[in-house]
């Protein structure tokens, strides 16, 4: 299956070259793949991941993805 991935803030450096923060890129995953697999595939160190979204809903890393899902991965962020 194909999914879209978006990386933000300090995680941007794990994205393919030339992507700006939050610009989606495509990734091929086996059916039933999880957010954790995306993180592993991109070689993101797990302690850098704080919040993960699928289609705008916060989901845990064990969440099973479906074809066409959009995954957003954030490091710790705060402000206001």
């Amino acid at each position: 299956m194909k999914i879209q991935v978006k990386l933000f803030a300090t995680l941007q450096r794990y994205a393919p070259a030339g992507q700006f923060a939050g610009e989606p890129f495509e990734m091929e995953l086996p059916d039933g793949g999880t957010i954790a697999m995306v993180v592993e595939r991109l070689a993101i160190r797990s302690h850098e991941v704080k919040v993960t979204f699928v289609n705008g809903r916060a989901r845990a890393e064990v969440y099973r993805l479906k074809d066409g899902d959009e995954v957003g991965i954030f490091p710790p962020v705060g402000g206001g």
């Binding site: 978006k6 933000f8 803030a9 300090t10 923060a21 939050g22 704080k50 919040v51 979204f53 705008g56 916060a58 957003g72 954030f74 490091p75 710790p76 962020v77 705060g78 402000g79 206001g80």
Partner: peptide, 27 residues
């Protein structure tokens, strides 16, 4: 120590506007 408040952490690097993308993502 905290990743958000430490030097070169989230706030020091990107400012409070670091929140634009995550709020957008959350709808």
């Amino acid at each position: 120590e905290h990743a958000i408040t430490k030097p070169k952490g989230g706030l020091n690097s990107y400012g409070t506007a670091i929140l634009v993308n995550i709020l957008n993502e959350a709808g």
